[in-house]
Amino acid sequence: MIVHGNRFTFKPGASPEQVEEALESLRNQGRSIPAVTSFTVGRDHGGEYEWGATFLIEDLDGYWEYLTHPSHLRTDRIGLPLVDRFASFDITDDLDPGMGAKIAALHQRRYDRDPELTRLVSDLGEYSGSAAPGPHA
Rank of each mutant, 00 (worst) to 15 (best):
N28K: 15
S32G: 11
T9A: 07
E20K: 09
T40P: 12
L23I: 02
Q29F: 07
R31Y: 15
A35E: 01
P12N: 11
A22Y: 03
Q18A: 03
T37I: 04
E17G: 11
T9C: 09
Q18W: 01
K11G: 06
F10G: 11
G42N: 08
P12M: 04
L23A: 01
R27N: 06
L26E: 00
S25N: 09
S15R: 11
N28P: 13
A22I: 01
S25T: 02
N28S: 15
F39Y: 15
K11T: 01
R31S: 13
K11N: 08
T40D: 11
P34H: 08
P12F: 08
S15K: 14
E20A: 08
P16Y: 05
F8R: 09
G30C: 04
V19K: 08
P34V: 04
P34N: 10
N28V: 10
V19G: 02
S25D: 00
F8C: 06
G42P: 10
E21S: 12
G30F: 00
R7C: 12
R7T: 09
G30L: 00
E17Q: 05
S25C: 03
E24K: 11
E21L: 11
F8A: 12
E21G: 15
E20F: 08
A14T: 12
E17T: 01
A35H: 04
K11Q: 06
T40Q: 14
K11A: 04
